[in-house]
Simulated scan of single mutants.
Amino acid sequence: MSPLDRLGLSIPLIQAPMAGVSTPGMAANVSNAGALGSIAVGATDASGARAMIDAVRAGTDRPFNVNLFVHASPVADAVREAAWLDALQPLFTTYGAQPPSRLRTIYRSFADDPEMLAMLLDAAPPVISFHFGLPSAAAVAALKDRGILLIATATGLAEATAIAAAGIDLVVAQGFEEGGHRSMFDPDAADDELGTLAVTRLLVREGKLPVIAAGGIMDGAGIAAALALGAVAAQLGTAFIACPESAASFSYKERLFGSAAHHTTMTRLISGRPARVLANRFSALEAEIGERRPPDYPIAYDAGKALHAAASAAGEHDFGAHWAGQGAPLARAMPAAELVRTLTAELARVRTG
């Protein structure tokens, strides 16, 4: 029996936690429809996270997931950061703006945030998931003592082994097809770029935890395929971007249904970590930037957000962090609960032949 079974889901589906896209309303509606809704609080502080958790609870009495970033503390490098801003200066000038005078660490890692841990121990959401790494053994033990189900994401067997050793309950097998940030514990390490099929099957066969498959899954047939590989559930993110509850901008959703959806690409220029994005002017900078390396995540993201804001103010929306997986052309625009019901019906049709 998988630990996921204790949540009483009517479909083995998790709506991926997407910072800047998933909202408390989306999470509540997904959970009410029988799947596991998620919010991402890595881009806010303990107070903001508490407000989001309260908002989800106001909309549902069903289980939901709270996702945290556990990235390594960034190393500030004034020379490298100044060089990065110099490289971006011509773009800022094009849009009549100046780059920031200095770059900030805009997101605090959960590993460095005792206030967030204290809040979560008090709020005790049903499920907590980790991205980019793992918290301390003491934090894991404290959260488990509160009866919280814990999930962490792996891109390969070594990370999955570390996740199991840490006492986490389930592992997300993140395929290279997935949209948004790669969850590699070390973003500078070589990436084997395992696809969803391969990494899911590898972790099912060689790992020690129940596996949730993620990456490129957009419909009931994809969920069925993940289950056939031995996964206990599938996690879908890009499929929910076009929902009305999504916080994605109009231009983001518009691009999701345009030609860019057929040309997603990996880039680390936007945030400082590798992430899959709808091909846009930011990802196209790879050819121009050459070997120049952006600052550490999330310091580089401060520059990326500033450039996007400057371009948007001038009417250019093609520098956004439009994260999306390779299944983007399969996206559908419908309310989150309706999407869950559609996925449930599609999965049932596959299962019954």
Rank of each mutant, 00 (worst) to 15 (best):
V140T: 00
V140D: 02
V140A: 08
V140I: 03
A141H: 13
A141T: 13
A141K: 10
A142V: 08
A142R: 15
L143T: 13
L143N: 10
L143I: 02
L143H: 11
D145G: 04
D145N: 10
D145I: 05
R146Q: 01
G147P: 08
G147A: 11
G147K: 08
I148H: 03
I148P: 02
I148M: 11
I148W: 01
L149I: 06
L149N: 02
L149C: 15
I151V: 02
I151F: 10
I151H: 02
I151G: 07
I151E: 13
I151D: 04
T153W: 07
T153Y: 13
T153P: 06
A154H: 01
A154L: 07
A154G: 11
A154P: 11
A154T: 05
A154R: 01
T155I: 09
G156L: 05
G156W: 00
G156S: 09
G156P: 13
G156H: 03
L157M: 06
L157I: 03
L157C: 01
L157H: 10
A158H: 04
A158G: 02
A158E: 04
A158T: 10
A160H: 00
A160C: 12
T161S: 07
T161E: 14
T161V: 09
A162Y: 01
A162E: 14
A162N: 14
A162C: 10
A162R: 07
A162F: 00
I163L: 07
I163M: 10
A164E: 09
A164W: 07
A165D: 11
A165F: 06
A165P: 07
A166D: 13
A166W: 12
A166P: 15
G167K: 02
G167D: 10
G167I: 12
G167E: 08
G167F: 00
I168M: 15
I168G: 09
I168Q: 07
I168V: 06
I168W: 15
I168E: 12
I168T: 06
D169A: 05
D169Y: 07
L170K: 07
L170I: 04
L170P: 10
L170A: 12
L170V: 07
V171D: 09
V171S: 08
V171G: 13
V171M: 12
V172K: 00
V172Y: 05
A173D: 07
A173W: 02
Q174T: 04
Q174C: 03
G175W: 15
G175H: 15
G175I: 08
F176V: 15
F176D: 14
E177H: 05
E177V: 06
E177I: 04
E177M: 01
E177A: 03
E178L: 11
E178F: 12
E178I: 01
E178G: 09
G179R: 10
G179Q: 15
G179H: 14
G180S: 05
G180N: 02
G180V: 05
G180T: 04
H181V: 07
H181Q: 09
